[in-house]
Design a protein around this nucleic acid. Sequence first.
DNA 1: CTTAGGG
DNA 2: CCCTAAG
Length: 626
Amino acid sequence: MVCSPRYGVAEQVRIDMVLMAIRCPPHLELPDHLGSSNTLTGKEPFAVAKDLIKKEQLDDDSASKVEPSNLVSGAPDLHFSTKEFPGTHIDDCSVLASVITSSDCSEKIGWAEKLVNEESKIQPGSSKVEPLRARNASNVTKAYMCTLDKLAVRYRKPPALISQENSVKVPLGTGHVSFPACRDVVNIAVRDDDENSSGCTQPSTTKTAFRPSPRIGDCRIRKILASKFWKAAPKLKDGEYFTAETKPGYHNRKNCYKRKRSPRDYPLKKRILYDGHSLSNSDGGITSEGISSSPRKGFSCDASGSGATLHGALGTTSGVASRHTPFQSRDSHVKLRIRSFKVPELFIEIPETATVGSLKRSVMEAVNAILGGGLRVGVLLQGKKIRDDNKTLLQTGLAHDNKLDALGFSLEPTVSQAPPPVCNEDHPLLLSCNAPQPLTRYPPAPCVVHNIVEQSAADALADPPLTSVGSFVESDHDSAPSPPDMSDKSPMDSRALVAIPEMDAEALAVVPMRKSKRSEAVQRRIRRPFSVSEVEALVHAVEKLGTGRWRDVKLRAFDNAKHRTYVDLKDKWKTLVHTARISPQQRRGEPVPQVLLDRVLDAHAYWSQQQAKQQLKQQSDTCLLL
DNA sequence: CTTAGGG
DNA sequence: CCCTAAG
């Protein structure tokens, strides 16, 4: 059974595309548009929504609403309604997405509650404040929806987006800094998908209007507003996302290492733990450190913000930014509500004889790939849930085209999280934390915008000059490899930009982690299969450097791929070698070109031999000494 | 922090 | 991918 998310790719499928929709509460449910041929080439849903919302703000600062119909054609099915809350910022979308994609229902509610509480705090007596209510504790799905439904998010402009270095501090609770010029930067920055978010740590990528020169070694940056959201997020795994301090790991490891010991990004667990304790202000506070502009090449913003339009997805960014008033608490505090949320179209190929169970799995895989996991998929036919996983599609009638329209999917929280302690269907549940929460800031929204990758590597087989330090591989949707000297202004060079299917929606997956302060729900990093181009880069680097210098390999070929650690590379090599040795039939996943596998074998043999020689030499040396 | 390996 | 022992 093949199940792979594809965007905008004309693909042959047995069962046409299935549009997945997260089933929202009845009133929130959206009509499916099966058959629509949206092409999401590289465009991230949130980015689009963001643009729309921004545009809205531009046009009408008072209030507006984005109708689905307003969505840019080809945009993902993500609909927001901001009618009640003008000025919504995209980041909120991310937050919401984070919440709704969180695997832990109770966590979601907790967060939602927190958000609401914060809101209350900010606008005491404001009628806008909607108490979050959770219903039926026993029904996880319900609670989940409830969260989605009721959650109101307040947006605050990311303060220290820029100069992390300076540690622009934003008082919790206020969090407003105004530097208009950087508005766009902020927006752009928002999107960090994976670990690059902490662009701050990345010298070459970090650009800020204020700080042209990135400072690398500065480990002192403190996260002012660190968002627990993000910290807990699986994506953060590497711990690099939002913590500048952790980030330096690779680059300034020496310095940082000695100096700060605890908050290491590396062991995620530790880090999270640390965070829990370190959040100085209220433990409950969600803080997010400053966000730095994204490393993505195309997005670098100079003071003028000219770089912002590189991507279609961000096209409106700069415009909005400029017109936007510097943050003022008033303007920037907005509530956003997601009326419905749809996952982009997915193409799934599955045989007629496949079971419903396998269909669920397929869909789940695809969806999880997008949402970052933590979800389970249910199948509905004509609104009724098909519970028998063992029925075949044929038996269920799903194999018929005409039935496809009646086919629906539901996303449910995975597993058996103990239902939130409380709540009863009709009893609005007052979520626990009563203590006013500190204002929270949301980290840059991980809008998936940039799935742009340099494909040059794949094309150019010629060995790059050894001198080039630039990474060879795509930075997994994020920062473009930008040689230090090269201004990041030229996002588009001659190289072909290719949208890669992978979405970094994982960024959205968040694990609120906040049971008690101590529970460290260290989540396993999400799986990120190596793409062929990555493999190519890896092979190339290993051919050059050998198998015992993973850090160098990382630096050389994956410097921009924050989520690939040298350990990952080493592991990947291990599996590559294994893969190369087994029969093609036994291989799984995206097939790696045989040529590459051959090179793997060759390189492996060569360097193994080399290593052996070294050892022999050493041995003889010691012998001589003795 | 890096390497090297087992899980 | 994670976890660890070693260096």
